[in-house]
């Protein structure tokens, strides 16, 4: 096979991996602090994408902004509104239902996702159809033999990697990160040692959701098209990555995200039946991986006390 195409696929895989990782980290963080799965997380990605689209459109309609500022306003909108959505869902749904049966939380967050999705479909003009996303990054192409990649794509990938790294540092090196880890370790003990439980939990939701919303923005910039229900698939893949990597850990979901993207890319490269079956294989992979590693690759360590 042509090396250039291979490199192209590798790049695609990396891009997917970063996006999956950014979403998976949120799942893992939420699970860490509250032991819940927030299934609306995928739709927060969509919220991010649409917020940035809206902000760019709005700002562009008022004044002719240079692309840099348009981009900045788009990112700012995505991150703020995404974080807000995460915090609201956390405050209104997840925290009150924390002690309810797990299925209730699951269903509630799935429904919250449905609300976000439907709100976008109904609230955005012509929201049921795919929306073009403006090109805000510099054009230009980097060529190396038969491999060529847009400068914008490289920037997106770099931004994603930096953010994942940044989040990792935030969790491991800062006071806020320490508080998150303390709550994840044992909420009760953390509370007793003076940590404001609710603030930390909501802060975690804000952090994870902002990350996901940024991923939504990146998706728009990369694929130039966004869709009201793109979050369903991304949410499930992000969740699966987090599960496979080990819920509650920080590194696990990142590895899981890249692993997942790797498998998907490999399938596209190796199998001639190609992209039509991409999703089928992704889902089959989820089912098989969970059958083999029911609590993740990096096993969630938990012996129930009796």
């Amino acid at each position: 096979m042509d090396v250039g195409i291979l490199a192209q696929q590798l790049f695609n895989g990396l891009m997917l991996g970063v996006i999956y990782a950014m979403i998976a980290v949120g799942f893992s963080l939420f699970f860490g602090v509250l032991d819940v799965i927030k299934f609306s997380h995928g739709d927060v990605v969509t919220v991010g994408a649409f917020s940035s689209l809206g902000a760019v459109g709005l700002a562009g309609g008022l004044v002719a902004l240079p692309p840099v500022l348009a981009l900045a306003s788009g990112i700012a909108a995505a991150v703020t509104i995404g974080a807000l959505a995460g915090v609201i869902i956390g405050r209104v749904l997840v925290l009150p239902l924390r002690h309810a049966p797990g299925v209730n939380v699951l269903l509630a967050t799935l429904m919250a996702g449905t609300v976000l999705r439907e709100a976008i479909r109904l609230g955005v003009p012509n929201g049921g159809n795919p929306k073009p996303f403006p090109a805000l990054l510099p054009g230009g192409v980097i060529k190396a033999g038969s491999f060529s990649v847009g400068v914008d794509s490289v920037m997106i990938l770099a931004a994603g990697l930096l953010l994942v790294l940044g989040t990792h540092l935030l969790i491991t090196r800062t006071r806020f990160g320490l508080a998150i880890r303390a709550v994840a370790q044992d909420g009760e003990v953390a509370r007793l040692s003076g940590i404001d439980f609710q603030t930390v939990v909501l802060g975690t939701f804000a952090l994870g959701s902002a990350l996901a919303a940024f991923a939504g923005c990146m998706l728009g910039l990369y694929y130039r098209e966004i869709n009201f229900n793109m979050g369903v698939l991304l949410g499930i893949i992000g969740f699966a990555s987090a599960v496979v990597g080990g819920l509650g850990s920080m590194l696990g979901p990142i590895i899981g995200g890249f692993l997942f993207a790797g498998v998907q890319t490999l399938v596209v490269v190796a199998l001639p039946v190609s992209s039509a079956y991409k999703d089928v294989i992704a889902f089959a992979a989820i089912i098989i991986l969970i059958a083999i590693f029911p609590t993740g690759l990096i096993a969630e360590r938990r012996s129930e006390r009796v």
Partner: peptide
């Protein structure tokens, strides 16, 4: 839950 969701989508 993830398993059944994945199955439905698959």
């Amino acid at each position: 839950a993830l398993v059944t969701i994945a199955f439905g989508l698959l």
